[in-house]
Design a protein around this nucleic acid. Sequence first.
DNA 1: GCCCCCTTTGCATTCGAAGTCATTTTGGCT
DNA 2: AGCCAAAATGACTTCGAATGCAAAGGGGGC
Lengths: 333, 333
Amino acid sequence: MTRRSATSYDVAREAGVSQSAVSRCFSPGASVSPRTRAKVMAAAQELGYHPNAIARGIRTQRSNLVAIIISNLTNLYYPEVLAELTQRLSVQGIRVLLFSLAAESDVDEVLDQVWEFRVDGAIVAARLSPAQLAGFEDRGVPVVLYNRVGEGVPVASVCCDSVTGESALVDGLVEAGHSVFGIIAGPADSYVGNERVESARRRLQQLSRDPIIVRGSFDYESGDRAFKELWRATSGKLDAIICANDLMAIGAIDSIRINAGLLVPQDLSVVGFDGVSPARWLAYQVTTIRQPVRRMTEAAVAMLIERIEAPDTTPEQRLFAGELLTGASARLG
Amino acid sequence: MTRRSATSYDVAREAGVSQSAVSRCFSPGASVSPRTRAKVMAAAQELGYHPNAIARGIRTQRSNLVAIIISNLTNLYYPEVLAELTQRLSVQGIRVLLFSLAAESDVDEVLDQVWEFRVDGAIVAARLSPAQLAGFEDRGVPVVLYNRVGEGVPVASVCCDSVTGESALVDGLVEAGHSVFGIIAGPADSYVGNERVESARRRLQQLSRDPIIVRGSFDYESGDRAFKELWRATSGKLDAIICANDLMAIGAIDSIRINAGLLVPQDLSVVGFDGVSPARWLAYQVTTIRQPVRRMTEAAVAMLIERIEAPDTTPEQRLFAGELLTGASARLG
DNA sequence: GCCCCCTTTGCATTCGAAGTCATTTTGGCT
DNA sequence: AGCCAAAATGACTTCGAATGCAAAGGGGGC
């Protein structure tokens, strides 16, 4: 029936010490005698006392909160990232304030909420305009971008190398003798989407292939739609499809097999990007580039904490090599 | 180069009014003249002022934070739930503190962190012991359980009806003439898993069928493993598999087709539960019970807010009917 | 026994906003 | 102009914990 939870004063009274003593018992490295500590801990236990992180935050100017801003959680790829980030931050004593966007246009609204909580930092997997990034800079809130870079602005970021990854895929497909290439792109406003498509396109052109590009939206259905479009546009000559992510690759594979009645990889090779778990399912075994999620999240957290503790270090951009997963959805040379 | 962000005092000085006036401008329904409001808003804009939610929290005893505790985010089903919950809470002006568990045993650790932030409430999709639930009760923190109920303790909860759902699936399978039933259960400590399996088993027994039950772990791989086990145990007589979730159903379907070389649904019918998006993919079209996620999350948020505002209302348990999705993975009568 | 120094301890103040209360201003009406 | 109620405003206190500072305590060396 405790209406409000115990405060440090309550514990102090119970233990017969001052409020300061209680506070010190909960601040690592403070000077407290074993006797006092024991008394305080006993009283705290008794009253079910936990230091109020809100009050601590106001006094220390450190909220111990980090905002994670993710645009589309339903992307299949992000839940894994989110879980990793949360757990890694948790180990460091940092809590996660989650912001999930229904639409990219909601960013401004969300940022206002972020400022109100005086977060110590932010990890962002959503498109930010230079003005929005400047908002972080102005307020001295460190940011680490996940799988995107600051456009023109120097910002810390963690990315998976699209150029090398797509080149490996393209090289394999070309060596295996594929000739008519289609690319299924992501939505126009996706940074990674554009980067992957551009990387693939450039590599193909270096090897004198000229791909047809159609736009998808990173989801299963758009893989189906985009394949049909590519198939029509090439009058059925298409023999290799490069998708901006695994989910569209899977959609395309299903469409090829079930709607078009063709064989993958005999008639058509399909490759993706990400290495999400469904890509490894027996039915698909997508040839793809697996992002090193663990290393990337680890780096993102480390970089963020470093920048929280030393805000004036220059922002670093880290690029991680993806791993080529040779599946059964493509013939590679 | 603003080291610390502006406070209400800074704005007050800039606008030539008192700090109280500034505060009132940001509290809905407070009495402020248009002239003052304009001056304050201009100054706030100028200084980039946002009320400090941390400080507000300490004064009002309302953090505007809600904890969401989810055990396995990688479950495919939960990301959708999480995104919905976050967005719905956001609309209500409530922020989400996310806690994701690496293992169920971490709950106690996580709860300590939850108490420190004086959250206004919590939505929990993880197993809580009666003692842990009592922790919420003692501290007056309202909880809403998602897809589980308090064991012995009265707690607000939102669930999808397993009994009706499984009965519909079983009835359909039996009517279609299936005779040898296998059930792929979830992990032993999963509430929904057990409930679904029990519901299916009871219904089967009412119809004089006696299923073989093997345990899975809610993931793709365990669908494969469990199918093989069922197949062996029935010497290949098995003709219907009921899975505790869609992911295992998908794993089983792939295993049946690719490893065993049999046809779904001609040789074997497979049904699942949840209605996750891969279940609708062309290759699977799993016959399943779709949880009404939107209605369930809406209810969870509404119930939580109600209990935050009127903590003494009796906790309500709401059960939502799932929708039978008739796919192509099973022959139903 | 005395002195000095290092460890503990408590007092008082601080963080930023919200709300209480008393006071001032405003506006409507006679 | 004068009066009164209502609206607007500011001074001050409060929320809970952390911390600078001064004072008290404890232990060792001589």
